[in-house]
Nucleic acid binder design. Structure first.
Lengths: 162, 162
DNA sequence: CCGATAACCGACTCCTCAGGTAGGATTTGT
DNA sequence: ACAAATCCTACCTGAGGAGTCGGTTATCGG
């Protein structure tokens, strides 16, 4: 399994926020309570709280405390690349433990210390890394929102005014 | 982390077999004892035994039992796609638990039962899936062997005749 | 000011699985 | 017969995923 449910739940949460924001600028949309999202997606509220905290720390959503509070996207969905979302939730995307990224975005392997021979598998993991990164960086939240609306056009959003 | 050390160790094992086979047809190459590989790659032998069993079950390597036994590639390195190796070691490559592949290679999500609305995240995971699959399917063991030899030209193989 | 609503936070549980060990049984060359 | 190897099953351990719970703080409406 490439990703855990953290990424899955977190992405669904973001999509839900994007759907409810609609065309309104994020800063003007009504904040959405986590409980509403949890119900709509049938996910455990207390678990979502942990996930949304990571998204907030990554400045992908903003929160409003107190009654009628909730969460909003920190910026328009078109400007949110999914790689930022997934990395906020799962941590850095390295195909293997021994991999890390230096400044410059180069992929390095901690096995090749002291200029010794390169990790035999580096070529492969670099390619995989590239494939995943490209897919995630090339997808915006707005695309997912649109996709989800196309596939559930008749479905009303729970909690909307009748 | 996308993959565990199972993939990492297993791939290194395969590369090692490929290096030692050299230009000889796999069926003629001397079988390589696991202990030799373990030593060369400084990996625990008893753990490698588990991994190589999976590779054998996937018919990627063949074994010779008894004294002077060992393992050989089941076919030339040019005909071994790394996706087969990684899948043998890690199991099917799905980005999420809810994903599975039907006959035809279509990606399906177990959440979209009864023709209901598609998983909001399906578009994203499908793209990631594609990125990984393309990278793995488009890389052969032969490429990795060549790559590793280019980067360790002066390094002799342990266990070779002097 | 009071109470309801919600975000916020830390601690704790449960369980799976990666990563590795251990010990034996079987096969085969010398 | 003996040694070298594969083969096989069982077991152990720690980390982390998945989720729960209880409590604190902030904010609104009345």
């Amino acid at each position: 399994m490439l990703f855990s449910t953290k990424a899955e739940y977190g992405v669904r949460l973001m999509v839900e926020l994007g759907r409810r924001a609609g065309d309104a600028a994020p800063s003007e949309a009504e904040p959405v309570a986590l409980g509403t999202v949890a119900e709509a997606e049938t996910l455990p509220l207390s678990y979502l709280e942990h996930l949304v905290a990571k998204l907030r720390d990554a400045e992908l959503v903003t929160s409003v405390r107190g009654a009628h509070g909730g969460y909003r996207l920190a910026r328009p969905a078109t400007e949110i690349a999914m790689i930022d979302v997934v990395e906020a939730l799962e941590g850095a995307i390295a195909p293997m433990e021994c991999f890390y990224i230096d400044r410059e975005g180069r992929v390095l392997c901690s096995h090749e210390v002291d200029g010794d021979r390169a990790c035999a598998t580096k070529l492969l993991w670099t390619r995989v890394q590239g494939g995943v990164t490209r897919a995630l960086a090339g997808t915006t939240l707005a695309e997912l929102v649109e996709f989800s609306e196309q596939h559930a056009p008749a479905k009303a959003l729970a909690g909307e005014p009748a």
